[in-house]
Design a protein around this nucleic acid. Structure first.
Lengths: 368, 368
DNA sequence: CTCGTTTCCGAAACCGGTTTCGGCAATTGG
DNA sequence: CCAATTGCCGAAACCGGTTTCGGAAACGAG
């Protein structure tokens, strides 16, 4: 008897499983009828369709997705390639994001295949592999770039995908996104209504599409508040706490420092706390700040960081639903949704205690 | 012509793919010979085996795992069910953990199926589903409990698994773990060598198996340092910053407060910073602290938190390798490994500036 | 040189589904 | 009342692999 080198002790054909053959035999129908009945073919009478459905229900029949896949090419799996080392801010969200996707997927009987990559090129390669090996029927793309190589690949291959975020060229793209621009605009308006007149903006990474949008939102906010735009008050490239502290120091060193700062990224905003502590400034009194993301860390500083919080879990949930629709054939144009971030006012933004001039003077005298 | 209700516009049989039939035809061999050659059956001559391997290589043949699965029952996928909402500390690690698993898995041509659950019971149900639907051939179990329902299920079903952590009953279990007890012991010895004599311990969640071990490590450390054990100095259940602050306050309120604290969890240790700030104590001078995990946040406090850092990515990597070996049939007893956490001395532990008595006095006078 | 073993490979069945095709019975139309 | 549809289902092929089984050729022993 021939035998494989690796011996697999566990029995192959698992005992309990009810196959389509068993089901059809029990119903006195042919395999093909059962299959077509279950898959909604029109050439099956309503009566038999119902009988089959009921039978499948009671016998607990569940088709093996990989057995179906061999003919249909679909494995009922969503793909997600997360880029790591990329941007620390992403990490705390990942668990919630996965939870949202996973729940929505399993509600439809789908699963989630996850891979990681350490660069955009690597991500593209990884997705190609997954498609090639049919490990995923479509992809959720987190952190969309303005010009995204992943989108180019998937478009070329005709692989379904949805983006978390929008992109420059929307052709053939489906997406779910949070309106960061609206949040930034509201942040500026909120600060202006408190009496601030010099409101700075510290943006995130420039390659991301959201940066462009959030900057625009900040500008719209200034415009709506009737405030002038001062290029000195606009900075960018701040993704983590160190970056945020650096940019804050630069802003405080201006002849006319801002009395309030809007950050595009919470983790960067936490850097403002550090920079303010260095100069003996009190956040929320001497300098106000409003940010975006809603990271848990923001609740643990004093005063807690006021931030537009993103419901990452809900986003993952919706993205999974959209992707499944997309894979089932819905047109991408019909699968575009946005939602707003919820403002959590926790006390880091208050009316200005000092004017810009007074603030500048105080900083000058305190200089070591 | 009959047609499905959901019309799937994309072509089924994808063009480029080379099947085993095509390969065998090109080689002038039968499908079965090619299959057996590739799978290492002994009844294939070395010459043909080589020829087939080479042919597969040049033609770029890659078997579809789900086509194989229909006969073998193996889909070449690892399963991971992460419990969320469970323990905040887990979140920052998740990305690295996934990266480690993903890299090791794909190196062997495997993929990773991820699902989430919000309770242990839910995790068990989810894993049953995945096994039932053959979406995973085995599982990596993070955060092992002393008595774990997941282990019970998988053992009963004969599904391969490896644990990140050890468990009370090792029967049939494979694992990779970091020696938290050794770290706790070293922490105590380090503090003792600096001159501390009242060293407290704040443990994490009691249900986790690691808590038991770390407490034991702390005790061993006291023993090795020749210090007496004081039940008042042992506290537990601290998983996040709030918990840690609470426990620190309780310790500082003791008649003889500790001059150093060992934490089992970094996020809890960060709470000590808060509690110390409230009382005007300087961390690393008035009160020393050493912790465990190596979370990035620990580097951003003043002074940075000295901590035994865990290489989560490496752990994920090794766990994936072990699981694949396990699925291929290796005995669980041969798949048990441990590693040590690396001590990152960042300045939060120094020689005691005040004795316990002096500290107590100072705290008493400062009381509002 | 003959006969029993090995060695090595092909034919065919199989895994659990899907899809094509054809045919019977019941309708419909003229 | 007969012919042409239509509705509904079964038989069989198929998807891309794995595994069983049997037999031809090469080998070794007597």
């Amino acid at each position: 008897m021939t035998k494989a080198i690796h011996d697999h002790e566990e029995g192959r054909a698992q005992p309990g499983r009810v196959t389509i053959t068993a089901l059809s035999a029990a119903l006195g129908l042919s395999k093909s009828t059962v299959s077509r009945a279950l898959n909604g073919y029109p050439d099956i009478s309503e009566r038999t369709r119902l009988r089959v459905r009921r039978g499948a229900e009671t016998m607990g029949y569940r088709p093996l997705s990989h057995a179906q896949a061999i003919r249909t090419g679909r494995v009922r799996a969503l793909g997600l390639v997360v880029q790591i080392g990329d941007h620390d801010a992403q990490r705390p969200f990942l668990a919630d994001f996965l939870a949202g996707i996973s729940v929505a997927a399993s509600a439809e009987g789908w699963t989630l295949t996850v891979a990681t990559a350490d660069s955009e090129a690597d991500a593209v390669r990884t997705m190609e592999q997954l498609v090639e090996d049919r490990k995923a029927d479509g992809f959720i793309l987190p952190r969309t770039l303005s010009h995204d190589a992943r989108v180019a690949l998937l478009r070329a291959r005709g692989v379904p995908f949805v983006m978390f975020g929008r992109t420059a060229d929307p052709e053939g793209c489906a997406w779910f996104d949070i309106l960061g621009e609206a949040a930034m605009r509201d942040a500026v308006l909120h600060l202006a209504s408190l009496g601030h007149r010099r409101i700075a903006f510290v943006n995130g990474g420039t390659a991301y599409n959201y940066s462009r949008l959030r900057l625009q939102g900040y500008r719209d906010g200034l415009d709506a508040a009737g405030l002038p735009e001062d290029p000195e008050l606009i900075r960018g490239g701040a993704l983590n706490t160190d970056d945020g502290a650096r940019e804050t120091r630069a802003l405080l060193a201006l002849p006319q420092p801002p009395t309030a700062v809007v950050f595009a990224v919470d983790h960067a905003a936490l850097g403002l706390y550090r920079a303010c502590a260095e100069r003996g400034l009190q956040v929320g009194r001497d300098v106000s700040v409003i940010s975006y993301d809603g990271v848990p860390d923001g609740a643990h500083v004093q005063p807690p960081l006021s931030s537009f919080t993103v419901d990452t879990r809900a986003a993952g949930h919706r993205l999974a639903e959209l992707l499944i629709d997309r894979i089932r054939g819905a047109a991408p144009e019909t699968l575009r949704e946005t939602a707003r971030a919820a403002f959590a006012d926790r006390g880091s933004a208050g009316p200005p205690r000092l004017s810009s001039e007074a603030l500048s003077k105080r900083l000058a005298t305190e200089t070591t």
